[in-house]
């Protein structure tokens, strides 16, 4: 039951949304200049720009509750991996399971399957937040849902092309799905931040998201002729601050220049 004092989405939840958007935006930008076709390079850059734009709006919203010195950049560049609350799935590199100290090529199948699984979730989340009593979060949701619907459509198209393409593309898509499905378990177990967001009545209802997500997944995999892998095994904890080994490398790179010049304005 929401009261007037609790119409603001809790800081921790806004940071979860912001960190997730930033980390995935950062990952997708890695394809810039390296895409399989020029047209797709441009499309993925759009995806990344949308996500970074969402992150900026969310960090600015979070900064209102994060103290007088807080800004979008202080939150993005001056928090370490232990403070980040993104889903583990979005911090993974663009390839199958491998330690960060090993080196592997980027795999477009991993990128698109991940974008699909994630965007599928976020269209549901943004739809719930559009009518939120937190007016600023509602405004962000209204913009983000349009972008996310496009991301979902783009990723769905690629999952289908790869699954129902060549033997090679089918095998890669299936391998990516097998690798990433277990990370979706994290979507459904409420973090402390999500629990308090739901208690505050901002609109989020995690329980109601899973069935439609599953429905879309089944529809897409059907067209893609891919097998839905069981989402079992280890449950990742990124949104609770327990990340994979990959996040500290991602943030180490991303934050390095800003941190080398602590007093600088850019």
């Amino acid at each position: 039951m929401s009261t007037a004092a609790h119409t603001l989405a809790p800081l921790a939840y806004v940071l979860q949304l912001a960190d997730t958007a930033l980390v995935l935006g950062q990952r997708n930008a890695e394809w810039c200049g390296h895409g399989p076709a020029l047209e797709e390079d441009i499309a993925l850059a759009n995806n990344s720009l949308d996500l970074i734009g969402q992150a900026r709006m969310l960090y600015s919203l979070a900064a209102l509750q994060a103290g007088p010195q807080a800004s979008e950049d202080s939150l993005a560049y001056w928090r370490g991996p232990e403070a980040f609350r993104n889903y583990t799935m979005v911090e993974l590199p663009h390839h199958g399971p491998m330690a960060p100290s090993a080196r592997q090529d980027r795999d477009f199948a991993t990128t698109m399957v991940r974008n699909f699984l994630f965007s599928n979730l976020m269209v549901g989340v943004w739809a719930q937040l559009e009518p939120s009593p937190d007016a600023q979060l509602a405004a962000i949701a209204a913009k983000a849902i349009k972008e996310t619907r496009y991301h979902l459509r783009h990723a769905h198209d690629w999952v289908v092309r790869m699954g129902d393409g060549t033997d090679t593309s089918h095998a890669r898509a299936q391998a990516a799905l097998d690798h990433l499905m277990p990370y979706t378990q994290e979507f459904w177990r409420p973090s402390a931040a999500e629990q308090s967001a739901m208690d505050f009545g901002i609109g989020l209802d995690l329980g109601a998201l899973q069935a439609p997500w599953q429905q879309q997944l089944t529809a897409t995999l059907d067209l893609a002729q891919l097998q839905a892998s069981p989402a079992t095994g280890f449950v990742s904890g990124g949104k609770n601050g327990i990340h994979s080994e990959h996040l500290s490398y991602l943030l180490g790179d991303m934050q390095s220049l800003a941190r080398a010049h602590p007093q600088a304005v850019w």
Partner: peptide
């Protein structure tokens, strides 16, 4: 593109991605 991942602010990161994306578009 070498500096996208390390851009020192989110605004500069977005601007740089948009610029590099434009260059791809110009090539196209």
């Amino acid at each position: 593109g070498n500096w996208i991942s390390r851009a020192p602010s989110l605004k500069r990161k977005a601007i740089l991605i948009a610029k590099v994306q434009d260059e791809g578009g110009h090539g196209l």
